[in-house]
Structures are given as structure tokens and as C-alpha cells.
Nucleic acid binder design. Structure first.
Lengths: 348, 348
DNA sequence: ATGAAAGCGCTAACAC
DNA sequence: GTGTTAGCGCTTTCAT
């Protein structure tokens, strides 16, 4: 924008002093006389002077801007993460530039390059579903661009990341069902290639074995997309069994929702006949009928932690001129108990 | 970022030519020899040269960046709008800087000032709920910053805006119910101070009168927050009436959802006994039970249109050096017919 | 206590 | 066809 921006020069000219003096006065430099400071600040105020951050950025090779690459913005979890990033960035005086890869590797590459060209001070990245090669990431790292990955992380030794502790979350959810007195707990499993799927299944298994309950392999049903439809189909299959489960721990909320629909249509009561627990990408568990007890994924906190980590790395690097050591932050989930799996022991 | 950025100078030095020649070669300037171009481009490629956009921005007083001020990111409607903005901005070669006001006027002021300092080429703004004074906006306009408002707009003669045609949307929704054969249609009304509330009520009334149906004032129930709870309370009130309605047009989806819950709990069938239509901030109408027929608010399109409008204004202004005339874009809604209000005439 | 000058990386008028 | 120069707005030595 050209337009009517007031510059330091304008103030200098008007006051008959030099631009450097104005610059110093504005930042309260010790060896500027109080009178000069006063005059400068008053005129700046009067003219509504606003420093040109672009010039500053060029001068200091620091933009105070974080680049964010996200698979899609319209997604409760990711928009929550953005909000968390924005929260921390704002407090620390950083802007955020948002790009969305739309789950495309090509787009992700372009985005990262564009962010580099904008000379962001660092990047926060959640990888696209397509991403299976990492040269574009490595290239940035080689240039020394600070990066922090979140949720969909780059699993490399020297990358910093923030992830959710899915194993503990799944364990907690299963444990909760066990405490309600459930004995035959089914698990609706997620996409087989994802790490989170394995973690959640593992947590499920551990909770059972640690409580001396058998793991019935036939009660583990795959929902490769984790959709409502798959949840329905899985529940149908489970209900048809000779000895159906008394509880379901679903890989995510849509699957849980589908299962709930099927159970209700079969005339069974939730949670009296079958208790249900989900693993949440949404906050909609509260809206389900009955409300769904769910493992809450801390998106906001993830954004905050990722931004904090990145900003710390940026500042360490700029001050100490050393590459900060990569860090991994594991976020705890929180089980939000609602109606669909009672708090008081329903069976003894 | 300082780090290892390759500059035009590096290429010039290595090739023994001047920086300006490199600059021209890189942008395929006509009077640079093919050989020089080739040499430059190859070396640039080899060194992985990336232009420094900050320097470019300073030089041209143009950042190719749009600032976005939004009340909250974690909201289906707004995140959809952001996605639309990002879509258009990306194609046009613009970055977007996102700020969220968190519905605070103070924060909105800070955000706008920060965006100005970053010298964004223009701003896309949806006002906070608190915003009742407009000096901060007027100040930016006075400086000549191109601005486009969307959804929560600044209702001034010389501001450009993109809004949804709530009146037609409400009319269409009501008309749909009339076509189903409904005679006594209730309306759950929204927050009384908002313009959209009036528009929707007006559309509701017009649809009835144009179809020679009486407007029963007692079937218009206020839901000042438009929440689930209010929807429930409103439905309870309506069901208690001596002559209850045969359809409900709700101000938004939560209210519709609440009403649906109450209706189902009363043992009535939707849509056979009472048809329901919502006005959507969410895409969740498809998940309701039965799925909710809903007036879809085109958030993505709104973001696209707002970004297009802003970019056009920016480019007109920079080329023709005149202030572009303010424009208003009225977006059509789309009635998405699902199960909860049948397509075929249910009553004759 | 203040000013002059250089430079961040890039481009564009003006040489030649 | 290519080099020289100046300047975008700012800060920061280095003078004085």
C-alpha cells in the first residue's frame, strides 16, 4: 500500500531534526533529550504515525510472522488448533499466515515455498494425507528454517513435534468403561495405516489386560474410514453376535454416532444396554442423543504448545546462533464423561 | 530469518555480472541475452534461489497480503469463509494474515492496527459482536486502505460488503413448508437486535401472506440466543397450545435441533406430525435425526466473493489511482431438502 | 544529544 | 544488452 502513510522522515522534516533522532526518540533511547522525545511522540501521535513493519522486517531480517500449513481449515480440530496458535502468536507479537494444503502434497510444497519466500520466522506444519516424501521439508530444514510439526508430524529425529497421547487416551476411555462394570467391550478400529489407530488399539488392549479381562478379537471391528456408515455397519455386526458386547469404544465420534444410531434403532438403550465412548475430533459429542462420553483431543492446547515451541526455537536461534535441539511434546487427552456411559457403576 | 538465503547479489557475483541484470534475467526481461538468461536461471535453480518478498514488498509498497479480521475461527461458518478467502487469495497470489477479535471491540481495534502496520494491501472484516463505534474503521478508510466487510458488515454508504440474502432464504424455506401442505407454521425468531433476525422474520411473513395464509402472531416465538435450550423451550410452548403448529421454521440449526428433541420426546413424528426447517450455520443438519432440511449459508462462497471484491478494488486502486466505488454483493442461499420436511406433499 | 551514512534485497530510470 | 545509481522506511554504527 502506498497511500497516506506517515514515515519517520515526515516527522523529522516537520520538527527540523534527523530521521535517526526520530527513530531513537520513538524507542525511548537513553541519550535523546526529554524535550525531543516529547516533541517527537506528540507529533507522531498527532499524525497517527504507524511504523512500517515491512521496512523493519527487511532491516532486521525478522518478520515476526509464523507460517501455518494445515490440511484443511474447515475442520473442527484444525480450526481449533489455528485458534490456539493465534492465541499464543498474538500475545508474543507474531502474525500468522495461514495456508491450506487441501490434503495435496503438491499444494503443501507450494505453500511451504511461498512461506519461505515471505520470510516467515518459522513454520507450523501438519502434513497432508498424501505426503510420503519429505525433500521439501528437508530442504527448508537445511536452510535453517525453524519448524514445528503438529498432529500429522514428520517422524524424523531432528524435527520438533506436538502430538496427542492417543495410547493413554484410549486406555483411559477403556478403563472408564471397565469401571462402569462393562465386561465385553468392543472396539471400532480406525484406518489401519495410521499410527493413531495402532496407539488407540494398543491402549484398548492394555486397559483390558491390566484389568485381567480377556481381549476378544472378534469384538475388534475395523472402520477404515471412521465414518458414520462404518460405525453403523460395525454395530450391526456386533449386535448379531450370539454374545453381543455390553460396551463400545469407538475410534472416533462419527463411528460412535453411527453405532449409536444402529443401537437405538435396534430398540436397545444407551448406556443401559450398551455403553458407548468415542474419540473426539468434534465438540459435537455433547449434542448427540444421549450425549457421548468422549476422549477430547486438545486442539487449542496443541496450537498453543506448537506456537510456544516454535517461538522459543526462533528466539533461541536468533540469540544464541545455535540450532535448538528438537523437542517432542506429548499432550494428554481428557475424558469428558457425559450420559452415554454412566459415571456410577451400571453393572457390578 | 537471516540464515542461508541466496540473494540476487550472490548470483551476480558468481556470474560476474550486475545484480540488475540478474533481476532482469529472472523476470525474463526482453533485452537480456538468451545466454545470460540461461546462465542466471540455471545458477538460481542450482543455488535454490528464492526471491525475498519482504524486500519486494518494501520496494513496491505492495505486500500481496490480505488481512482478515474474524470474530472467531472455531466456528463452522467462519472457518468456511476463511477457506473461501484462502482459495481465491491463493489463486491470485496473495497471502492471508488471520486475526481473531474473539468478539472484542478492543481486540478488533488492535488487530486492524496491526494489519495496517504490516501494510496488508487490504482487509476483510467481519465485525465483533461488541462493535458499536466505527472510528477505527473510518480511520483506516481515511488512510485509503481497501476494505471489504462480510456477514457482520459496517453499514455505511461507502463500504463494500458481502452479505447473505436472508429475506429470500427465509421466504424460500417457508414456501417449501407451504408446498408440503403445512398450514400453521411457527417461527422461532432470533436475537432481536440483529438485522438478520428481522430479515428472516420478514421473509417468513411475506411467504405466508403471498400465499394467502394468515400470520399467527402467537406462533412466532423468540429465541434471543438461538440456542438448543431456547429451541426446546419454544417447542414446549408451541406443543402446549390448543391448536399446535404443523411446522416450524427455526431461526438457526441449534434452535431447530432443540425443537426436534422436544418434539421427539413428546412422541410426535418428524416430519409427519410436525415438519422442521432450519437456517444453517453448520453442516450438521445432515447428522440430525431425522436429517434437517435447512437454508444453507454459503460461507465458502462468501469468502470467495469477499476476496475477489477486495482484490479487484486493490488492483483498480493501484492501477487507476482512484478510489473504487463501494459494492455490495448479496449472496443467494440454497435450501437443502432432507428428510425432516418431506419433498412430496405430506398434507393436502 | 544529534546527525550523516550505510545497508537490509530488490527494481527501475537512466546511462552507455 | 548491461551496468550504475537511487531509493522503498527503518535502524545503527560512527562521527561530532
Amino acid at each position: 500500500m502506498k497511500y497516506n502513510q506517515v514515515t519517520i522522515k515526515d516527522i523529522a522534516r516537520e520538527l527540523g531534526i534527523s530521521p535517526s533522532t526520530v527513530s531513537r526518540a520513538l524507542k525511548d533511547h537513553p541519550d535523546i533529550s526529554p524535550e525531543t522525545k516529547k516533541a517527537v511522540n506528540e507529533l507522531a501521535e498527532k499524525l497517527n504515525y504507524q511504523p512500517n513493519i515491512v521496512a523493519l522486517s527487511l532491516r532486521q531480517s525478522k518478520t515476526n510472522t509464523l507460517g501455518v500449513v494445515i490440511p484443511e481449515i474447515v475442520h473442527f480440530f484444525f480450526s481449533t488448533v489455528i485458534s490456539g496458535i493465534e492465541d499464543v502468536a498474538y500475545s508474543a507479537g507474531y502474525n500468522i499466515i495461514i495456508t491450506q494444503s487441501n490434503e495435496s502434497l503438491q499444494r503443501e510444497k507450494t505453500d511451504i515455498k511461498a512461506l519461505f519466500n515471505s520470510r516467515v520466522d518459522g513454520m507450523l506444519i501438519s502434513l497432508s494425507r498424501e505426503t510420503n516424501s519429505f525433500e521439501h521439508i528437508d530442504a527448508m530444514m537445511a536452510k535453517g528454517v525453524p519448524m514445528v510439526f503438529f498432529d500429522r508430524v514428520y517422524d524424523s529425529a531432528n524435527s520438533s513435534k506436538v502430538i496427542v497421547d492417543d495410547l493413554s487416551g484410549a486406555k483411559e476411555a477403556t478403563l472408564h468403561l471397565i469401571e462402569q462394570g462393562c465386561k465385553r467391550i468392543a472396539h471400532l478400529e480406525g484406518p489401519p495405516n495410521l499410527d493413531i489407530t495402532k496407539q488407540r488399539l494398543q491402549g484398548f488392549r492394555e486397559a483390558l489386560t491390566e484389568n485381567n479381562l480377556p481381549v476378544h478379537e472378534d469384538l475388534i471391528v475395523s472402520c477404515p474410514q471412521g465414518t458414520i456408515e462404518e460405525g453403523k455397519a460395525a454395530a450391526e455386526k456386533l449386535l448379531k453376535m450370539a454374545n453381543p458386547p455390553d460396551a463400545i469404544f469407538a475410534t472416533n465420534d462419527p463411528a460412535a454416532m453411527g453405532a449409536m444410531q444402529t443401537i437405538k434403532e435396534a430398540g436397545l438403550k444407551i448406556p443401559q444396554d450398551i455403553a458407548v465412548v468415542g474419540f473426539s475430533n468434534w465438540f459435537f459429542s455433547s449434542l448427540m442423543d444421549p450425549p457421548l462420553t468422549s476422549v477430547d483431543q486438545p486442539g487449542f492446547e496443541m496450537g498453543q504448545e506448537a506456537a510456544k515451541l516454535l517461538i522459543r526455537q526462533i528466539e533461541v536461534k536468533s540469540k544464541e546462533h545455535i540450532d535448538p535441539t528438537p523437542e517432542t511434546k506429548l499432550l494428554k487427552t481428557r475424558l469428558i464423561v457425559r450420559d452415554s456411559s454412566l459415571k456410577s457403576g451400571k453393572k457390578k
